[in-house]
């Protein structure tokens, strides 16, 4: 009897591998349940660490208060100049849009969450975000996570309390991007390293060093024009993207859920969904 348990359990686990392979939702559900359960514990550990890092309430920053004040004043002055520039540009932009009959893109809902744990596996890069109370009930899977500077990743699993964000550096991350002012298409793929690689750019036009990388709406998973990073060449013919988001020390993430972000021409069958959702909205 006891001799049989090991082979039986081995067969059982092999069966589980097959089941998990066939039904990706199973492990996703279990994992988000576990994340929900563990999120408070993670918060208990990462809270003090973050507090110590920021020096909030601690004596950490007392010693360079005057330096920091001077720096902040200087930054404030330059930011006020930029504010003036931004307001002028906004006015100009509005005027130009008005003369172009520009159709504004839909405004996404967003909610902001604390990053409680940077829990990658051995071959995975992801972070866990605690969802705020006001986002309860909305389906966060597929939401786009951005920090203050750029796209950090996408929500792949979400429970009631916590959501798991797959970072753009993860091996499984594939993001259609547009390069430079012309918006040349390419695919940004994670490598588990710090900088994702660029694939499938047009052979005649290699991406230029320093070109801006924005998301592209090809495939319909992302809205166009979100800032991702900057093109950089590590070696010849091997362009990578330097992400704008500070992926090593994410603290706060905004999760943008685009209610109907798919453009009209997306080659994904999407007829049943609008029929089901629109009557409720109206």
């Amino acid at each position: 009897m006891s001799r049989l348990t090991l082979p039986v359990m081995l067969m059982f686990s092999l069966g589980l591998v097959l089941i998990g392979r066939a039904d990706q939702n199973l492990s996703g559900h279990l994992r988000s349940g576990l994340d929900d359960l563990l999120a408070p514990a993670y918060l208990l550990v990462s809270g003090p660490i973050q507090a110590a890092e920021h020096g909030t309430g601690a004596i950490g920053h007392l010693f360079d208060l005057s330096d920091e004040n001077a720096q902040l004043r200087a930054e404030n002055a330059s930011l006020l100049q930029w504010q003036a520039v931004a307001m002028a540009l906004e006015a100009q932009n509005n005027a130009l849009k008005a003369s172009l009959n520009y159709v504004p893109s839909p405004v996404p809902q967003f909610s902001t969450g604390d990053v409680v744990a940077d829990i990658g596996g051995v071959y995975a890069r992801s972070v866990l975000v605690v969802l705020p109370a006001d986002s309860a009930g909305t389906n966060m899977v597929g939401a786009i996570a951005m920090d203050g500077r750029g796209v950090a990743g996408r929500v792949v699993e979400a429970g009631s309390r916590a959501a798991r964000v797959l970072l753009i550096t993860d091996l499984n991350s594939r993001i259609p991007v547009a390069l430079g002012p012309g918006g040349a298409p390419a695919l940004m793929t994670g490598t588990n390293g710090p900088d994702p690689a660029l694939l499938y750019w047009a052979p005649g036009q290699p991406p230029a060093e320093g070109a801006m990388v924005l998301t592209s709406s090809v495939g319909g998973a992302f809205p166009p024009g979100l800032p991702v990073g900057v093109v950089h060449y590590d070696a010849q013919n091997d362009p990578v993207v330097l992400p704008l988001a500070d992926l090593d020390s994410l603290r706060l993430l905004r999760l943008f859920s685009y209610p109907d972000s798919l453009p009209v021409l997306t080659p994904i069958a999407r007829t049943p969904k609008p029929a089901a959702t629109h009557p409720r909205k109206r």
């Binding site: 006891s2 348990t5 090991l6 039986v8 359990m9 081995l10 059982f12 686990s13 092999l14 069966g15 589980l16 591998v17 089941i19 998990g20 392979r21 199973l26 492990s27 279990l30 994992r31 576990l34 829990i119 990658g120 596996g121 051995v122 071959y123 995975a124 992801s126």
Partner: peptide, 28 residues
Amino acid sequence: PAPLVAIVGLLLDLLGLSPFGLWAVLLL
């Protein structure tokens, strides 16, 4: 015993983002 090892392996897979059941097999 083996069933507990399998459960621990599944827990490791859920925590460590590896394919479900992989570490259960390996630990067994």
